[in-house]
Structures are given as C-alpha cells and as structure tokens.
C-alpha cells in the first residue's frame, strides 16, 4: 500500500507492506538512519520521533496509521544553517551522550518533554524520560542537559 508522510518538511511516498512499522518506513524506505531501533518491546525509546509535534516511539506505530501526517526526526531538529537546537547544544555542553545510540530518541523525547513542562524539576525530567533507556551515561548528564535546556537549576 502507498503511504505518504511529511518528514522534516519533505514529502515521502512509498509502497510498503501494510505491516510496515513507522520506524522501518523512516529508516529503510526514506533512508533516515538517525532514528535507531534498540529493542522489540517498545521499551527503549531509541526510535522516538515527533508525530505532529508529540514524541512517539516509532516502533509502536504502523506507517499506514499515520499516512498523511507530519513527522520530525533527529535529522530535522537543527536549524537549516546547521545551528544546533538548544537541546542538542545542551547535550553537547553537558556530555549527555557517549556511544550515541540512544541519543536521537533521547533528544527528541527531551524536546517534547520541555514542550509540556518548560522548566522541569529533576524529578520531572527523570519521570519524563523513563521510557528512554541509556546504557552509557547513567542518565546523570542527560538529566543535567535537559535541566539546562529548560533553564532549570
């Protein structure tokens, strides 16, 4: 079946099997590999993208379910001139990434978290990112980065 999505401002139409997951559409059909797959139970959040501005785990949705809607992936977060989004900048400043595998999903989840709670407490950040797993950082600098991006102390 044909699925059309606007991803990072560009329209993408592909013929896919009805069972195609959104994350496979993004990675295999569109070729945007910043969005990663880290599990098979929707536990890790490495595949988090924005669907109409809200963070979703793209492994839990069929591409067909979101036909015609708008997506943003990590590749669409920085400004056109390459300037990092404040969340990307905060992760860089605070060493919020190591191997980088959870990073795209983590950053997308964090951006969405600040949309909902602009100045979160540490507890709010920790609860807000519970669905995004990281094996490298112990979360310490991720939490610090999100707090910094949110102007929280």
């Amino acid at each position: 079946m044909k699925v059309t999505l606007t991803i990072n401002g560009a329209r993408h139409s592909h013929d896919v099997e009805p069972r195609t997951l959104l994350v496979h559409f993004i990675r295999d059909n569109v070729g945007l590999t910043g969005t990663n797959i880290g599990c098979d139970t929707s536990s890790c959040g490495a595949c988090t993208v924005h669907l109409d501005g809200e963070a979703v785990k793209s492994c839990t949705i069929l591409a067909a379910q979101v036909d015609g809607r708008e997506l943003r992936t990590i590749e669409g977060l920085a400004a056109a001139d390459g300037t990092l989004h404040p969340m990307q900048q905060a992760f860089h400043e605070n060493h919020g990434l190591q191997c980088g595998f959870c990073t795209p999903g983590m950053v997308m989840a964090a951006v969405s978290l600040l949309d909902d709670v602009p100045h979160p407490t540490e507890r709010e950040v920790r609860e807000g990112l519970e669905g995004n797993l990281c094996r490298c950082t112990g979360y310490h600098n991720i939490v610090k980065a999100v707090m910094a991006a949110g102007g929280s102390k």
Binding site: T33, T35, N36, T103
Partner: peptide, 21 residues
Amino acid sequence: VKRVEDPRFLTVGGTYVDDLR
C-alpha cells in the same frame, strides 16, 4: 574539552552496522 564527536551523533546519528549504505 567538549567532545568533538558529538555534533554528528546529535544531528544525523552515528553510522552503526545496520545504518551502512
């Protein structure tokens, strides 16, 4: 010193085996 590796991972993601094109 902030990591020189970071910008790539933060903007387009790394190139892991499954990402190879």
